[in-house]
Amino acid sequence: MKECILAFFGSLFLAILINVDRKKFFWVGLPGSLGWAAYAWLLDATREVIFATFVGAVVVGVYSEIAARKLKSPATVFSISGAFPLVPGVGAYNTVQMIVEGDMNGALGTGIETIASAAAIAAGIMLASAIFRIMKRPM
């Protein structure tokens, strides 16, 4: 619960730094906390970082598509903000840190994990938007 609140503000503050609209403060924080909740819960249950990240991203993606339709603004606004806590910026940084320290095996492992998590986030968000696009099309 504490982590969800932190993730809410983490998303919100980073979104403010990229100049999100004042009226949407609550709506850009929410996906951060929903995505993090799914991620943290699955990580705890399965210990699979990439799978957990993927599911977190799907949650963020579904939220963004719904919010985009309700609030009439592009889904990217919500998905970028919501993905911030999941984004493996830390992994990218750790990789380089390990290279500098000379730990090449560690760097390779973290590096691959970083790229895989970034791919998982993008794939999760795109999956959600693809599903919504198919549903919208008249049968």
Binding site: I18, I80, A83, F84, V87, P88, G89, V90, A92, Y93, T114, A118, A119, I121, A122, A123, I125, M126
Partner: peptide, 12 residues
Amino acid sequence: LLPGMALTSGIK
């Protein structure tokens, strides 16, 4: 400062 957004939009 971390390039989270660039990384994800790159793959997108």
